[in-house]
């Protein structure tokens, strides 16, 4: 599994980085930590590039490197990376790759499990390109900032998207898994099983009767889902909740929930203009939400 963690400001990115690394360690996956720098106007992009090159030559930090250095120090302080004299951030090499991507190579870096990269440009375009080029399975991003970014990420990025909102390191979390009979829901169930197994979390399966579905049919879905978890020896509870799907799930989710949802099967054009249920839930919930693809 390959995980992409997108970071922005320092303090603001702490929870994203922390949860992202926990997930990466649980799955023993390779991780890319990406900082996307400000979009530069086409008028000035070459001038900016020359200046940044000049700053590198003078051993003055290039903008964005400070954020990656902070992220690296944070990983060491949290023991996600073993601290050695040889892998200090002081001695780094920036490798200019194609498509506005720069990779930071540290002199003593032994493992290829964690990559630090810097990109410049429009954030959605850059993350989309990063995911497509390097085949990341999950993109983890902070919950702050412009909500439109999350909508576009879910819509256009070819990986699962984890929006880390209101995450606290000291809290004991449980998975909240809303299910129905869609294909997206099947994928969410699979992901929730993997998460619960490797992260040792309890799971709460919920379902909301929608449209012409009878309560019996919904209960059947809940039972079937519970069996899948039981086979993997994961503790679950089930609950049938009433009301409009989005609001019911948002109200049911607590601060200690990690909501895992499947991507909407809706027509992409309809999703773009009118949104979707998983997206509305992700926007309204005040807890981490993973939308699987």
């Amino acid at each position: 599994m390959k995980i992409l963690i997108a970071i922005g400001g320092r303090e603001f990115s702490k929870p994203t980085l922390d949860l992202g690394m926990k997930i990466a360690n649980s799955f023993k996956s390779s991780t890319t930590i990406a900082y996307v720098g400000k979009k530069i106007s086409q008028f000035s992009e070459k001038d900016v590039s020359v200046v940044h090159q000049n700053l590198d030559d003078r051993e003055l930090y290039r903008p964005g490197i400070r954020t990656l250095e902070w992220a690296y120090d944070f990983l060491i302080s949290k023991k996600y990376i073993e601290e050695k004299d040889s892998n200090k951030f002081d001695d780094y090499l920036l490798v200019d790759e194609e498509n506005s991507r720069m990779k930071v190579l540290l002199k003593g870096q032994q493992s290829d499990k964690i990559d630090l990269i810097m990109r410049t440009g429009e954030i959605i375009e850059q993350l989309k390109d990063e995911v497509e080029t390097n085949k990341h399975d999950i993109t983890i991003i902070g919950g702050g900032g412009n909500k439109g970014i999350h909508q576009k990420l879910v819509q256009f990025i070819d990986s699962s998207v984890f929006v880390v909102k209101n995450y606290s390191v000291n809290k004991k979390y449980k998975i909240l898994l809303p299910v129905n009979d869609s294909k997206g829901s099947d994928m969410a169930i699979e992901t929730a099983i993997n998460f619960a197994k490797s992260y040792k979390l309890n799971v709460e399966i919920v379902s909301v009767p929608e449209g012409k579905k009878s309560i019996e049919e919904v209960e059947k879905i809940l039972k079937k889902t519970k069996e899948k978890f039981s086979k993997n020896r994961i503790k679950t509870t089930t609950k049938l909740i009433d009301g409009p799907a989005v609001n019911s799930i948002v109200n049911y989710a607590k601060d200690d929930s990690i909501v895992i949802l499947g991507v909407s099967p809706k027509n992409p054009i309809m999703k773009y203009f009118f949104g979707s249920k998983p997206l509305s839930i992700a926007q309204k919930c005040n807890c981490p939400v993973l939308i699987t693809k």
């Binding site: 000035s44 001038d47 900016v48």
Partner: peptide, 11 residues
């Protein structure tokens, strides 16, 4: 201007 953009790009 390039100046303004370069100063802004420092973050």
């Amino acid at each position: 201007s390039p100046t303004a953009m370069i100063i802004y790009s420092t973050g």
